[in-house]
Design a binder for these strands. Structure first.
Lengths: 228, 228
DNA sequence: ATGACTTTCGAACAAGTGTTTGAAACTTAC
DNA sequence: GTAAGTTTCAAACACTTGTTCGAAAGTCAT
Protein backbone atom coordinates (compact mmCIF):
# COMPACT_ATOMS: atom_id res chain seq x y z
CA UNK A 1 0.00 0.00 0.00
CA UNK A 2 1.03 3.52 -0.76
CA UNK A 3 2.67 5.19 2.20
CA UNK A 4 2.32 8.77 3.35
CA UNK A 5 5.57 9.92 1.77
CA UNK A 6 4.62 8.84 -1.73
CA UNK A 7 1.15 10.22 -1.26
CA UNK A 8 2.56 13.67 -0.74
CA UNK A 9 4.62 13.39 -3.91
CA UNK A 10 2.16 11.78 -6.28
CA UNK A 11 0.22 14.97 -7.17
CA UNK A 12 3.17 16.00 -9.33
CA UNK A 13 3.22 12.78 -11.29
CA UNK A 14 2.34 12.11 -14.97
CA UNK A 15 -1.34 12.38 -15.85
CA UNK A 16 -0.49 13.71 -19.35
CA UNK A 17 -3.75 12.92 -21.14
CA UNK A 18 -5.91 15.50 -19.37
CA UNK A 19 -9.21 13.78 -18.68
CA UNK A 20 -11.33 16.74 -17.58
CA UNK A 21 -8.81 17.44 -14.82
CA UNK A 22 -10.03 14.44 -12.89
CA UNK A 23 -8.45 14.49 -9.43
CA UNK A 24 -6.47 11.72 -7.79
CA UNK A 25 -8.25 8.47 -7.00
CA UNK A 26 -7.79 9.00 -3.29
CA UNK A 27 -9.00 12.59 -3.56
CA UNK A 28 -12.04 11.56 -5.56
CA UNK A 29 -12.90 9.01 -2.87
CA UNK A 30 -12.51 11.62 -0.13
CA UNK A 31 -14.73 14.11 -1.96
CA UNK A 32 -17.53 11.68 -2.62
CA UNK A 33 -17.29 10.10 0.83
CA UNK A 34 -17.47 13.51 2.46
CA UNK A 35 -20.67 14.34 0.62
CA UNK A 36 -22.32 10.97 1.21
CA UNK A 37 -21.35 10.80 4.89
CA UNK A 38 -23.02 14.17 5.34
CA UNK A 39 -26.09 13.22 3.34
CA UNK A 40 -26.76 9.75 4.70
CA UNK A 41 -24.52 9.35 7.71
CA UNK A 42 -21.60 7.00 8.22
CA UNK A 43 -23.45 3.72 8.69
CA UNK A 44 -25.96 4.30 5.90
CA UNK A 45 -23.21 5.03 3.40
CA UNK A 46 -21.78 1.88 1.83
CA UNK A 47 -18.39 1.62 0.20
CA UNK A 48 -20.14 0.63 -3.02
CA UNK A 49 -22.10 3.87 -3.06
CA UNK A 50 -18.86 5.76 -2.63
CA UNK A 51 -16.79 3.87 -5.19
CA UNK A 52 -19.53 3.96 -7.80
CA UNK A 53 -20.01 7.72 -7.60
CA UNK A 54 -16.27 8.29 -7.42
CA UNK A 55 -15.84 6.00 -10.44
CA UNK A 56 -13.16 3.93 -8.79
CA UNK A 57 -12.88 0.25 -8.03
CA UNK A 58 -14.42 -1.06 -4.85
CA UNK A 59 -11.08 -2.25 -3.51
CA UNK A 60 -9.58 1.22 -3.94
CA UNK A 61 -10.92 2.38 -0.60
CA UNK A 62 -9.22 -0.38 1.34
CA UNK A 63 -6.09 0.02 -0.74
CA UNK A 64 -5.71 3.76 -0.19
CA UNK A 65 -7.17 4.12 3.29
CA UNK A 66 -7.16 0.68 4.86
CA UNK A 67 -10.78 0.46 6.02
CA UNK A 68 -14.08 2.28 6.06
CA UNK A 69 -13.38 3.56 9.55
CA UNK A 70 -10.00 4.89 8.47
CA UNK A 71 -11.62 6.52 5.44
CA UNK A 72 -13.98 8.42 7.71
CA UNK A 73 -11.07 9.54 9.81
CA UNK A 74 -9.24 10.73 6.69
CA UNK A 75 -12.32 12.60 5.45
CA UNK A 76 -12.57 14.36 8.78
CA UNK A 77 -8.90 15.05 9.30
CA UNK A 78 -8.48 16.63 5.87
CA UNK A 79 -10.72 19.51 6.95
CA UNK A 80 -10.39 19.86 10.70
CA UNK A 81 -6.76 20.94 10.70
CA UNK A 82 -7.09 23.95 8.40
CA UNK A 83 -10.34 24.95 10.07
CA UNK A 84 -8.90 24.97 13.57
CA UNK A 85 -5.84 26.78 12.25
CA UNK A 86 -8.05 29.46 10.72
CA UNK A 87 -9.88 29.99 14.01
CA UNK A 88 -6.64 30.22 15.97
CA UNK A 89 -5.26 32.71 13.45
CA UNK A 90 -8.34 34.88 13.94
CA UNK A 91 -7.82 34.59 17.69
CA UNK A 92 -4.20 35.69 17.32
CA UNK A 93 -5.32 38.77 15.43
CA UNK A 94 -7.77 39.98 18.08
CA UNK A 95 -5.78 38.97 21.15
CA UNK A 96 -3.20 41.72 20.82
CA UNK A 97 -2.12 42.63 24.39
CA UNK A 98 -3.16 46.28 24.39
CA UNK A 99 -6.43 45.75 22.56
CA UNK A 100 -9.68 45.12 24.42
CA UNK A 101 -11.24 41.71 23.83
CA UNK A 102 -14.99 41.73 23.20
CA UNK A 103 -17.41 38.81 23.03
CA UNK A 104 -18.43 39.95 19.58
CA UNK A 105 -14.86 39.73 18.33
CA UNK A 106 -14.63 36.20 19.71
CA UNK A 107 -17.86 35.14 18.07
CA UNK A 108 -16.71 36.63 14.80
CA UNK A 109 -13.38 34.85 15.04
CA UNK A 110 -15.27 31.57 14.88
CA UNK A 111 -17.97 32.65 12.48
CA UNK A 112 -15.57 34.03 9.88
CA UNK A 113 -13.79 30.72 9.20
CA UNK A 114 -17.21 29.07 8.99
CA UNK A 115 -18.27 31.65 6.44
CA UNK A 116 -15.06 31.26 4.46
CA UNK A 117 -15.55 27.53 4.49
CA UNK A 118 -19.13 27.84 3.32
CA UNK A 119 -18.08 29.92 0.36
CA UNK A 120 -15.12 27.82 -0.76
CA UNK A 121 -16.22 24.59 -2.42
CA UNK A 122 -12.61 23.53 -2.92
CA UNK A 123 -12.29 23.24 0.84
CA UNK A 124 -15.48 21.25 1.20
CA UNK A 125 -17.83 24.21 1.33
CA UNK A 126 -20.54 23.98 3.93
CA UNK A 127 -20.20 20.22 3.92
CA UNK A 128 -17.59 20.09 6.62
CA UNK A 129 -19.63 21.99 9.16
CA UNK A 130 -22.52 19.65 8.47
CA UNK A 131 -20.17 16.71 8.81
CA UNK A 132 -19.09 17.99 12.20
CA UNK A 133 -22.65 18.41 13.39
CA UNK A 134 -23.45 14.87 12.29
CA UNK A 135 -20.31 13.54 13.89
CA UNK A 136 -21.28 15.33 17.05
CA UNK A 137 -24.54 13.45 17.54
CA UNK A 138 -23.30 10.21 16.00
CA UNK A 139 -20.65 10.14 18.71
CA UNK A 140 -17.96 8.33 16.80
CA UNK A 141 -15.83 6.13 18.96
CA UNK A 142 -12.67 6.75 16.95
CA UNK A 143 -12.94 10.50 16.58
CA UNK A 144 -13.94 11.37 20.10
CA UNK A 145 -10.68 10.12 21.49
CA UNK A 146 -8.43 11.05 18.60
CA UNK A 147 -9.69 14.62 18.44
CA UNK A 148 -10.16 15.36 22.09
CA UNK A 149 -6.45 14.96 22.72
CA UNK A 150 -5.22 16.63 19.58
CA UNK A 151 -7.43 19.68 19.42
CA UNK A 152 -7.97 20.46 23.06
CA UNK A 153 -5.90 23.56 22.33
CA UNK A 154 -8.94 24.89 20.47
CA UNK A 155 -11.15 24.77 23.54
CA UNK A 156 -8.38 25.98 25.82
CA UNK A 157 -7.64 29.02 23.70
CA UNK A 158 -11.30 29.96 23.46
CA UNK A 159 -11.85 29.32 27.16
CA UNK A 160 -9.06 31.69 28.12
CA UNK A 161 -10.22 34.24 25.60
CA UNK A 162 -13.79 34.15 26.88
CA UNK A 163 -12.54 34.52 30.45
CA UNK A 164 -10.79 37.69 29.33
CA UNK A 165 -13.76 38.99 27.36
CA UNK A 166 -16.29 38.26 30.11
CA UNK A 167 -14.40 38.97 33.36
CA UNK A 168 -17.64 39.73 35.21
CA UNK A 169 -18.72 36.05 35.15
CA UNK A 170 -17.49 32.97 36.97
CA UNK A 171 -15.72 30.36 34.90
CA UNK A 172 -18.53 27.83 35.32
CA UNK A 173 -21.06 30.25 33.88
CA UNK A 174 -18.72 31.04 31.02
CA UNK A 175 -18.31 27.36 30.26
CA UNK A 176 -22.07 26.95 29.98
CA UNK A 177 -22.44 29.96 27.73
CA UNK A 178 -19.62 28.80 25.50
CA UNK A 179 -21.38 25.46 25.33
CA UNK A 180 -24.60 27.12 24.19
CA UNK A 181 -22.87 29.57 21.87
CA UNK A 182 -20.90 26.98 19.94
CA UNK A 183 -23.94 24.73 19.80
CA UNK A 184 -26.09 27.31 18.09
CA UNK A 185 -23.28 28.51 15.83
CA UNK A 186 -22.43 25.03 14.65
CA UNK A 187 -26.00 24.03 14.01
CA UNK A 188 -26.77 27.30 12.31
CA UNK A 189 -24.02 26.79 9.77
CA UNK A 190 -24.90 23.14 9.43
CA UNK A 191 -28.39 24.30 8.49
CA UNK A 192 -30.06 22.06 11.04
CA UNK A 193 -33.51 23.55 11.27
CA UNK A 194 -35.22 22.16 14.35
CA UNK A 195 -38.54 23.71 13.52
CA UNK A 196 -38.70 21.92 10.19
CA UNK A 197 -39.27 18.71 12.11
CA UNK A 198 -42.48 20.12 13.51
CA UNK A 199 -43.62 21.83 10.36
CA UNK A 200 -42.64 24.29 7.72
CA UNK A 201 -40.19 26.70 9.25
CA UNK A 202 -40.54 30.37 8.50
CA UNK A 203 -36.85 30.73 7.77
CA UNK A 204 -36.76 30.74 4.01
CA UNK A 205 -33.08 30.13 3.42
CA UNK A 206 -31.48 28.78 6.56
CA UNK A 207 -28.29 27.91 4.69
CA UNK A 208 -27.42 31.30 3.19
CA UNK A 209 -24.11 32.09 4.92
CA UNK A 210 -24.45 35.89 4.84
CA UNK A 211 -27.97 35.78 6.22
CA UNK A 212 -26.86 33.38 8.93
CA UNK A 213 -24.15 35.69 10.14
CA UNK A 214 -26.32 38.77 10.04
CA UNK A 215 -28.82 37.18 12.41
CA UNK A 216 -26.57 34.78 14.26
CA UNK A 217 -23.93 37.13 15.67
CA UNK A 218 -26.30 39.46 17.54
CA UNK A 219 -28.16 36.49 18.98
CA UNK A 220 -25.06 34.75 20.28
CA UNK A 221 -23.38 37.89 21.56
CA UNK A 222 -26.50 38.85 23.48
CA UNK A 223 -26.71 35.39 25.00
CA UNK A 224 -23.06 35.47 26.01
CA UNK A 225 -23.11 38.91 27.57
CA UNK A 226 -26.51 38.82 29.27
CA UNK A 227 -26.38 39.65 32.98
CA UNK A 228 -26.80 36.61 35.18
CA UNK B 1 -51.47 -8.93 12.29
CA UNK B 2 -52.91 -7.19 15.30
CA UNK B 3 -54.83 -4.06 14.37
CA UNK B 4 -55.00 -0.78 16.25
CA UNK B 5 -58.36 -1.53 17.90
CA UNK B 6 -57.19 -4.72 19.54
CA UNK B 7 -53.91 -3.10 20.48
CA UNK B 8 -55.78 -0.57 22.59
CA UNK B 9 -57.67 -3.30 24.38
CA UNK B 10 -54.90 -5.81 24.97
CA UNK B 11 -53.34 -4.07 27.99
CA UNK B 12 -56.32 -5.27 30.02
CA UNK B 13 -55.84 -8.87 29.09
CA UNK B 14 -54.73 -11.83 31.21
CA UNK B 15 -51.08 -11.93 32.22
CA UNK B 16 -51.97 -13.60 35.55
CA UNK B 17 -48.59 -15.09 36.46
CA UNK B 18 -46.79 -11.87 37.28
CA UNK B 19 -43.35 -12.15 35.71
CA UNK B 20 -41.62 -9.14 37.30
CA UNK B 21 -44.30 -6.91 35.76
CA UNK B 22 -42.75 -7.40 32.35
CA UNK B 23 -44.45 -5.06 29.91
CA UNK B 24 -46.11 -5.99 26.66
CA UNK B 25 -43.98 -7.43 23.88
CA UNK B 26 -44.67 -4.42 21.67
CA UNK B 27 -43.90 -2.04 24.53
CA UNK B 28 -40.68 -3.80 25.35
CA UNK B 29 -39.62 -3.52 21.73
CA UNK B 30 -40.46 0.18 21.70
CA UNK B 31 -38.50 0.83 24.90
CA UNK B 32 -35.37 -0.97 23.76
CA UNK B 33 -35.56 0.42 20.24
CA UNK B 34 -35.89 3.96 21.58
CA UNK B 35 -32.75 3.57 23.64
CA UNK B 36 -30.72 1.90 20.92
CA UNK B 37 -31.81 4.33 18.19
CA UNK B 38 -30.61 7.16 20.42
CA UNK B 39 -27.36 5.44 21.29
CA UNK B 40 -26.31 4.15 17.89
CA UNK B 41 -28.64 5.77 15.39
CA UNK B 42 -31.23 4.18 13.17
CA UNK B 43 -29.00 2.52 10.60
CA UNK B 44 -26.47 1.21 13.09
CA UNK B 45 -29.17 -0.45 15.19
CA UNK B 46 -30.10 -3.91 13.91
CA UNK B 47 -33.34 -5.68 14.63
CA UNK B 48 -31.35 -8.45 16.25
CA UNK B 49 -29.82 -6.04 18.74
CA UNK B 50 -33.31 -4.84 19.60
CA UNK B 51 -35.00 -8.22 19.86
CA UNK B 52 -32.18 -9.72 21.91
CA UNK B 53 -32.21 -6.96 24.51
CA UNK B 54 -36.00 -6.90 24.55
CA UNK B 55 -35.99 -10.68 24.95
CA UNK B 56 -38.46 -11.23 22.15
CA UNK B 57 -38.31 -13.22 18.96
CA UNK B 58 -36.72 -11.63 15.93
CA UNK B 59 -39.95 -11.87 13.93
CA UNK B 60 -41.86 -9.99 16.60
CA UNK B 61 -40.82 -6.62 15.23
CA UNK B 62 -42.23 -7.31 11.80
CA UNK B 63 -45.30 -8.91 13.32
CA UNK B 64 -46.17 -6.00 15.61
CA UNK B 65 -44.92 -3.07 13.57
CA UNK B 66 -44.54 -4.27 10.01
CA UNK B 67 -40.99 -3.16 9.29
CA UNK B 68 -37.96 -1.51 10.80
CA UNK B 69 -38.99 1.81 9.26
CA UNK B 70 -42.45 1.52 10.76
CA UNK B 71 -40.93 0.65 14.13
CA UNK B 72 -38.94 3.85 14.09
CA UNK B 73 -42.06 5.79 13.26
CA UNK B 74 -43.88 4.12 16.17
CA UNK B 75 -41.01 4.88 18.56
CA UNK B 76 -41.14 8.49 17.55
CA UNK B 77 -44.91 8.89 17.47
CA UNK B 78 -45.35 7.45 20.95
CA UNK B 79 -43.54 10.45 22.43
CA UNK B 80 -44.07 13.36 20.11
CA UNK B 81 -47.81 13.64 20.66
CA UNK B 82 -47.78 14.07 24.44
CA UNK B 83 -44.75 16.34 24.21
CA UNK B 84 -46.36 18.71 21.73
CA UNK B 85 -49.56 18.62 23.78
CA UNK B 86 -47.62 19.60 26.90
CA UNK B 87 -46.05 22.57 25.12
CA UNK B 88 -49.39 23.72 23.76
CA UNK B 89 -50.93 23.43 27.22
CA UNK B 90 -48.18 25.63 28.62
CA UNK B 91 -48.85 28.08 25.82
CA UNK B 92 -52.55 28.13 26.65
CA UNK B 93 -51.73 28.96 30.25
CA UNK B 94 -49.60 32.00 29.43
CA UNK B 95 -51.59 33.31 26.48
CA UNK B 96 -54.48 34.60 28.59
CA UNK B 97 -55.85 37.66 26.74
CA UNK B 98 -55.27 40.27 29.41
CA UNK B 99 -51.86 39.01 30.47
CA UNK B 100 -48.67 40.34 28.91
CA UNK B 101 -46.67 37.78 26.92
CA UNK B 102 -42.93 37.81 27.55
CA UNK B 103 -40.15 36.01 25.70
CA UNK B 104 -39.10 34.42 28.96
CA UNK B 105 -42.55 32.92 29.46
CA UNK B 106 -42.40 31.47 25.94
CA UNK B 107 -38.99 29.98 26.49
CA UNK B 108 -40.14 28.47 29.75
CA UNK B 109 -43.24 27.03 28.11
CA UNK B 110 -40.94 24.92 25.96
CA UNK B 111 -38.28 24.24 28.54
CA UNK B 112 -40.70 23.02 31.21
CA UNK B 113 -42.01 20.05 29.17
CA UNK B 114 -38.40 19.22 28.32
CA UNK B 115 -37.55 19.25 31.99
CA UNK B 116 -40.58 17.17 32.90
CA UNK B 117 -39.63 14.69 30.21
CA UNK B 118 -36.06 14.51 31.44
CA UNK B 119 -37.24 13.66 34.93
CA UNK B 120 -39.85 11.07 34.01
CA UNK B 121 -38.27 7.80 32.88
CA UNK B 122 -41.69 6.27 32.25
CA UNK B 123 -42.16 8.74 29.42
CA UNK B 124 -38.77 8.06 27.93
CA UNK B 125 -36.81 10.45 30.11
CA UNK B 126 -34.23 12.50 28.31
CA UNK B 127 -34.08 9.90 25.58
CA UNK B 128 -36.80 11.44 23.47
CA UNK B 129 -35.15 14.82 23.21
CA UNK B 130 -31.96 13.09 22.17
CA UNK B 131 -33.92 11.05 19.66
CA UNK B 132 -35.32 14.24 18.20
CA UNK B 133 -31.89 15.81 17.88
CA UNK B 134 -30.62 12.70 16.13
CA UNK B 135 -33.63 12.56 13.88
CA UNK B 136 -33.06 16.18 13.06
CA UNK B 137 -29.65 15.66 11.50
CA UNK B 138 -30.39 12.20 10.18
CA UNK B 139 -33.15 13.74 8.13
CA UNK B 140 -35.47 10.80 7.97
CA UNK B 141 -37.45 10.62 4.78
CA UNK B 142 -40.51 9.16 6.50
CA UNK B 143 -40.71 11.50 9.45
CA UNK B 144 -40.06 14.74 7.64
CA UNK B 145 -43.25 14.43 5.65
CA UNK B 146 -45.40 12.76 8.27
CA UNK B 147 -44.55 15.27 10.97
CA UNK B 148 -44.42 18.44 8.96
CA UNK B 149 -48.09 18.14 8.12
CA UNK B 150 -49.29 16.90 11.46
CA UNK B 151 -47.44 19.18 13.83
CA UNK B 152 -47.26 22.39 11.88
CA UNK B 153 -49.64 23.70 14.52
CA UNK B 154 -46.69 23.64 16.93
CA UNK B 155 -44.65 26.04 14.83
CA UNK B 156 -47.66 28.16 14.00
CA UNK B 157 -48.65 28.62 17.62
CA UNK B 158 -45.13 29.54 18.66
CA UNK B 159 -44.70 31.84 15.67
CA UNK B 160 -47.81 33.79 16.57
CA UNK B 161 -46.85 33.85 20.23
CA UNK B 162 -43.37 35.16 19.47
CA UNK B 163 -44.84 37.83 17.21
CA UNK B 164 -46.90 38.96 20.19
CA UNK B 165 -44.03 38.78 22.63
CA UNK B 166 -41.57 40.59 20.35
CA UNK B 167 -43.68 43.17 18.52
CA UNK B 168 -40.69 45.44 17.96
CA UNK B 169 -39.16 43.04 15.41
CA UNK B 170 -40.09 42.10 11.86
CA UNK B 171 -41.43 38.61 11.31
CA UNK B 172 -38.35 37.54 9.34
CA UNK B 173 -36.06 38.47 12.21
CA UNK B 174 -38.32 36.65 14.64
CA UNK B 175 -38.23 33.53 12.48
CA UNK B 176 -34.44 33.52 12.58
CA UNK B 177 -34.33 33.99 16.32
CA UNK B 178 -36.85 31.24 16.88
CA UNK B 179 -34.68 29.07 14.68
CA UNK B 180 -31.65 29.77 16.84
CA UNK B 181 -33.54 29.55 20.11
CA UNK B 182 -35.05 26.15 19.45
CA UNK B 183 -31.76 24.90 18.08
CA UNK B 184 -29.86 25.68 21.24
CA UNK B 185 -32.69 24.50 23.52
CA UNK B 186 -33.02 21.17 21.78
CA UNK B 187 -29.33 20.48 21.68
CA UNK B 188 -28.88 21.59 25.26
CA UNK B 189 -31.41 19.05 26.50
CA UNK B 190 -30.06 16.44 24.15
CA UNK B 191 -26.70 16.99 25.82
CA UNK B 192 -24.90 17.50 22.53
CA UNK B 193 -21.69 19.11 23.62
CA UNK B 194 -20.01 20.60 20.58
CA UNK B 195 -16.86 21.46 22.43
CA UNK B 196 -16.29 17.86 23.40
CA UNK B 197 -15.40 17.14 19.80
CA UNK B 198 -12.46 19.49 20.06
CA UNK B 199 -11.39 18.51 23.51
CA UNK B 200 -12.53 18.18 27.08
CA UNK B 201 -15.35 20.59 27.63
CA UNK B 202 -15.42 22.61 30.82
CA UNK B 203 -19.09 21.85 31.39
CA UNK B 204 -18.97 19.14 34.00
CA UNK B 205 -22.51 17.86 33.81
CA UNK B 206 -24.08 19.00 30.57
CA UNK B 207 -27.04 16.66 31.06
CA UNK B 208 -28.26 17.80 34.49
CA UNK B 209 -31.73 19.18 33.70
CA UNK B 210 -31.86 21.74 36.48
CA UNK B 211 -28.43 23.10 35.67
CA UNK B 212 -29.37 23.28 32.00
CA UNK B 213 -32.40 25.41 32.69
CA UNK B 214 -30.62 27.70 35.09
CA UNK B 215 -28.07 28.61 32.45
CA UNK B 216 -30.11 28.05 29.31
CA UNK B 217 -33.08 30.32 29.88
CA UNK B 218 -31.13 33.57 30.42
CA UNK B 219 -28.99 32.82 27.38
CA UNK B 220 -31.92 32.19 25.07
CA UNK B 221 -34.05 35.05 26.36
CA UNK B 222 -31.16 37.47 25.89
CA UNK B 223 -30.61 36.25 22.35
CA UNK B 224 -34.29 36.58 21.53
CA UNK B 225 -34.76 40.04 22.93
CA UNK B 226 -31.46 41.63 21.89
CA UNK B 227 -31.89 44.86 19.92
CA UNK B 228 -31.21 44.46 16.23
C1' DA C 1 -63.53 -29.38 24.89
C1' DT C 2 -64.16 -27.09 20.37
C1' DG C 3 -63.01 -23.65 17.13
C1' DA C 4 -61.38 -19.05 15.98
C1' DC C 5 -57.88 -15.76 16.75
C1' DT C 6 -53.65 -13.90 18.36
C1' DT C 7 -49.06 -14.30 19.37
C1' DT C 8 -44.57 -16.62 19.45
C1' DC C 9 -40.96 -19.20 17.52
C1' DG C 10 -37.14 -21.31 14.67
C1' DA C 11 -35.54 -21.50 10.26
C1' DA C 12 -34.68 -19.90 6.10
C1' DC C 13 -34.47 -16.32 2.39
C1' DA C 14 -32.33 -12.99 -0.89
C1' DA C 15 -29.70 -9.01 -0.76
C1' DG C 16 -26.16 -6.12 0.88
C1' DT C 17 -22.06 -5.36 3.96
C1' DG C 18 -16.69 -4.56 4.59
C1' DT C 19 -12.67 -6.88 3.39
C1' DT C 20 -9.22 -9.88 0.98
C1' DT C 21 -6.79 -11.86 -2.83
C1' DG C 22 -4.03 -12.52 -6.87
C1' DA C 23 -3.51 -11.29 -11.30
C1' DA C 24 -3.54 -7.57 -14.66
C1' DA C 25 -2.33 -2.80 -16.01
C1' DC C 26 0.23 1.07 -15.41
C1' DT C 27 4.27 3.97 -14.08
C1' DT C 28 8.96 4.87 -13.26
C1' DA C 29 13.95 4.26 -13.31
C1' DC C 30 17.97 2.06 -15.06
C1' DG D 1 13.73 -3.38 -23.01
C1' DT D 2 13.77 -5.06 -18.39
C1' DA D 3 12.68 -5.03 -13.73
C1' DA D 4 10.76 -2.97 -9.58
C1' DG D 5 7.16 -0.59 -7.67
C1' DT D 6 2.50 1.32 -7.69
C1' DT D 7 -2.19 1.23 -8.73
C1' DT D 8 -6.39 -0.87 -10.64
C1' DC D 9 -9.52 -4.50 -11.30
C1' DA D 10 -12.88 -8.57 -11.08
C1' DA D 11 -14.06 -12.06 -8.20
C1' DA D 12 -14.83 -14.06 -4.21
C1' DC D 13 -14.87 -14.21 0.88
C1' DA D 14 -17.43 -14.63 5.40
C1' DC D 15 -20.84 -12.17 7.60
C1' DT D 16 -24.86 -9.29 8.73
C1' DT D 17 -28.94 -7.20 7.24
C1' DG D 18 -34.43 -6.91 7.04
C1' DT D 19 -37.99 -9.80 5.90
C1' DT D 20 -40.96 -13.97 5.23
C1' DC D 21 -43.16 -18.37 6.24
C1' DG D 22 -45.46 -22.21 8.34
C1' DA D 23 -45.90 -24.57 12.28
C1' DA D 24 -46.31 -24.47 17.30
C1' DA D 25 -48.13 -22.35 21.43
C1' DG D 26 -51.18 -19.50 23.78
C1' DT D 27 -55.74 -17.03 24.58
C1' DC D 28 -60.54 -16.61 24.84
C1' DA D 29 -65.62 -17.00 24.09
C1' DT D 30 -68.91 -20.39 23.54
Amino acid sequence: MMNKATQLITPIKGQDHMEANKPDTATRILDVAERLFVEHGFEATSLRMITQQAEVNLAAVNYHFGSKDALFESVFMRRIGPFVAACLAELDAIEQPGQALTAEALVTSFVRPCLALSKDPSRGGALFVRLMSRTLVENHRLLREALSQQYSVFVQRYSIAFQRALPQFESEDIAWRMHFAFTVMFNAFAGNDVLKIFGRSQVVNARDPDLIIKHLVPFVVAGLTAPI
